[in-house]
Design a protein around this nucleic acid. Sequence first.
DNA 1: TTGAAAGCGCTAACAC
DNA 2: GTGTTAGCGCTTTCAA
Lengths: 341, 341
Amino acid sequence: MDSAGVTIDDVARRAGVSVATVSRALRSLPNVSAATRHKVEAAAAELDYHIDRTASRLATGRTETVGVVVPMLDAWYFSRVMSGIEAILSEAGYDVLVTSVTDEAARHRLASGNAPLRKRVDGLIFVDVLLTPDEISALDQTSLHIVTVGQRTGAFPAVTIDNRGAARDLVAHLVDLGHRRVGFVAGGPAADLPFSVPGERRDGYADGLDKAGVGHDEGLEVWTGFTLAQGAAAARQLLEMPDAPTAIFAASDVLAFGALQAARELGRAVPGELSVAGFDDREVSSAMDLTTVHQDPAAQGRAAAALLLEEPARRDHSETLHEIVAETRLVLRGTTAAPPP
Amino acid sequence: MDSAGVTIDDVARRAGVSVATVSRALRSLPNVSAATRHKVEAAAAELDYHIDRTASRLATGRTETVGVVVPMLDAWYFSRVMSGIEAILSEAGYDVLVTSVTDEAARHRLASGNAPLRKRVDGLIFVDVLLTPDEISALDQTSLHIVTVGQRTGAFPAVTIDNRGAARDLVAHLVDLGHRRVGFVAGGPAADLPFSVPGERRDGYADGLDKAGVGHDEGLEVWTGFTLAQGAAAARQLLEMPDAPTAIFAASDVLAFGALQAARELGRAVPGELSVAGFDDREVSSAMDLTTVHQDPAAQGRAAAALLLEEPARRDHSETLHEIVAETRLVLRGTTAAPPP
DNA sequence: TTGAAAGCGCTAACAC
DNA sequence: GTGTTAGCGCTTTCAA
């Protein structure tokens, strides 16, 4: 009862037709009579035949596989984006190949058009993996379908959020509350990998302050890593300054959690003496009552996957590039309030 | 300069040898003279030749691809296990195919030996995806290499942790502190998918109480979902009981966070009036000063991947089944203390 | 509407 | 040590 070795020939023989006909019938191509189609389907079902995708890949060149390239898999943001991508792509019958690139070399290997991966996938989704102009044009010359998340290339469909605008709005809110000295904490580019998101949020932070006529002070920016402990250390550094800020905007919720911890340790009441805001709106953030910017990475992943599935059609009709800016929104909670008088 | 279409024939021609020789040379097989090997390697490099894995898969039957099956991708535990698996497998040159199974039907489709996926992977890692005896024997009859994480089948190598023992030790600690009424909160089987972990932790909880002669009270067990909010609701339910528990053991840190939130809302001091403990030791848990059981899912993922890579050798030498019980350890922090007098 | 046959790019006997 | 050749299981002209 081992149906492992059932090939298209077996089905053809059983149905009394040629393999070509089986191939057509099973793929619902035209030019197959209804009667024949039924015969073939019955035979296939009886034999528990499953098409060997490897063979069909070799014959067609189409792999029905999509590669997802991320800097890491174990962070809140990326695991959710992955989840969204996988949901849509699996549903559509695609295999999802996941690769994390932890250094520049690995990144370039994938992003150069002739990468070995190239022949194993029909498309690639780069999530927060920055492509250089050279890589972009190399990829553009291949037949690969590309979508980026978190970066706009101008060449490929993209899903991004307005990091700068959202950060600006958040900081504007702090200024509205009366804050004049607002600190900023962010994780810098990790291990040799460029990462544009923190920079965009920093620019929005500066914008918000500048626009309000408050002006931004680079002395209030602390660049660190991505962990809670690092956020706490950075916040501590800010809070121990002679003219300490009355509010801290952290570029991610984890860092904001760290800031809350530091405030607790230093005995600064939140939000009475210190306001703290983050970015992401993770599941725990509402429990921490954290003011933050909400984003939905899973939805971004689903959108990216959907864009990828539409790519062939778009290219054929040479439609305009589809760039989606996913929704974010300010979530005002209890960690922000007016500064002490 | 499009090296996309470079085939083994091109390399053979360039090097002035046969394709068979190229194939051998490039795979470092014996029976190739050093001189020839050099010639071939040079030719391949000049042409920027990359082997077409699809073709070689069809010829050999080996896919050099491993499928990872998880219930979901966006949870703390699974994203870290995935991360560990991917790190090892990518390093070893394998492609990692990820599939999440969200319902019974999808699970069975994958777990039955003749699944379409079967021909696309050399091996499968099931993470907290419970296999039935029928599925186990079906899979066992295939040539697939299987490893399970979070479940022991007796048929395949496995990586697990001692959920029951760890929970027992944690509860024993609570009893040592003087607690006699200890509540339990856990997430039940999700959407139609069986899930053994919460049950094992519950049994350990009961063990701990029974062993101490305290005895367990099913009235103090609340089964809910996996979110922080659900944990809070469950804890609230326990705390509003007439004879409320003095300690709450949550089967995961997220649920424990919920319990902490509920305690705060109800004005119960932690750990003065109420002790709270969790399970997982997530990154934020130390910031929350939560007593919990530490586990390292990424290490479990790496171990599972390593087991998979060893499988062929093990089978050949019919060595004994390798079942790894990954380390867990009690982390005593500030959310647990003696009950009020 | 159907079938015969030539690939897709590689590997693995088998012969030399 | 190297080459010849027959597949791997499917798709896709081209003819019928």
